[in-house]
């Protein structure tokens, strides 16, 4: 379970101050997929980076399974699987070696590690890729490797920052199926995206962020009802109060 409480964060430069988060609060519960929607610059990535413990909030706090992220970042991160905004791969390593590396970083060893790697390779249907170096992988293949390395330790919580960018239909479907399966096992999934259909189809609850604040939350249906629209996209535009960022 991921909880964000009254997060404030501003970035100061010599010329001006940008308020990225302005009292954002929400919860992502276990056994649910929670989507974060918001226009560009709404504070999604800042919020997620605060969750990873990379940034510290000016005010408020975030917890992962009750562990305070700023006070105990290593313990909090151990319960987290991360699919970051920009993901790169170690191109001189094979896919298997990368997954092995991240498994070891999460403290897995010996047969437990081997078994965990085998499981994730089977789940993501990527055995054929496993022993190839990742240089020259396609976007979909890269996504699979990143997903595998984030999930090899079976984290209770899983955060994805716009995972479907640049993916074809087949890869998107693989990802969706996997997330659904993962949810059924009782894990907590937090998912930021720009693609309305995807959020509508996949998410149990949706959080709409605008200007660093919570604009609205609820199931996709509830949001549509709230805005008096039939399509989530229309509801989104209405709820954030402008059509800025929807085109992205």
């Amino acid at each position: 379970m991921i909880e964000v409480n009254n997060l404030h964060k501003s970035f100061k430069s010599k010329k001006d101050t940008v308020k990225a988060l302005d009292g954002l609060s929400f919860q992502a519960k276990d056994g649910e997929i929670t989507g974060i929607l918001g226009p560009n610059g709404a504070g999604k990535t800042t919020c997620l980076r605060t969750l990873y413990g990379l940034l510290s909030a000016d005010e408020g706090f975030a917890t992962i399974d009750g562990i305070h992220v700023t006070k105990n970042p290593l313990a909090a991160r151990a319960r987290l699987g991360i699919f970051p905004d920009k993901f790169g791969l170690y191109e001189r390593l094979t896919a298997y070696e990368q997954i092995d590396y991240f498994a070891s970083l999460h403290g897995l060893t010996g047969t437990a590690k081997k078994q965990a790697i085998e499981n994730v390779l089977t789940d993501l249907d990527m055995r054929e890729l496993a022993h190839r170096k990742t240089a020259g992988f396609s976007q979909g293949q890269r996504m699979k490797v990143t997903l595998a390395q984030a999930l090899v330790h079976q984290p209770q919580n899983f955060v994805l920052d716009e995972p479907t960018r640049g993916l074809d239909v087949m890869s998107t479907r693989v990802l969706r199926n996997y997330l659904s399966k993962f949810k059924e096992k009782g894990h907590c999934i937090l998912f930021s995206s720009h693609v309305m259909q995807e959020v509508a189809a996949l998410c149990d609850r949706v959080i709409i962020v605008a200007n660093g604040k919570l604009a609205a939350q609820g199931t996709p249906q509830e949001l549509c009802d709230l805005a008096g629209e039939t399509q989530l996209e229309e509801a989104f535009v209405k709820l954030i109060g402008s059509d800025e960022g929807v085109a992205a």
Binding site: R77, A78, I82, P84, F87, H106, Q149
Partner: peptide, 12 residues
């Protein structure tokens, strides 16, 4: 190569 952020997010 964008792998540093991923590494910094790990419990290390």
């Amino acid at each position: 190569r964008n792998v540093l952020e991923m590494l910094l997010c790990q419990p290390v």
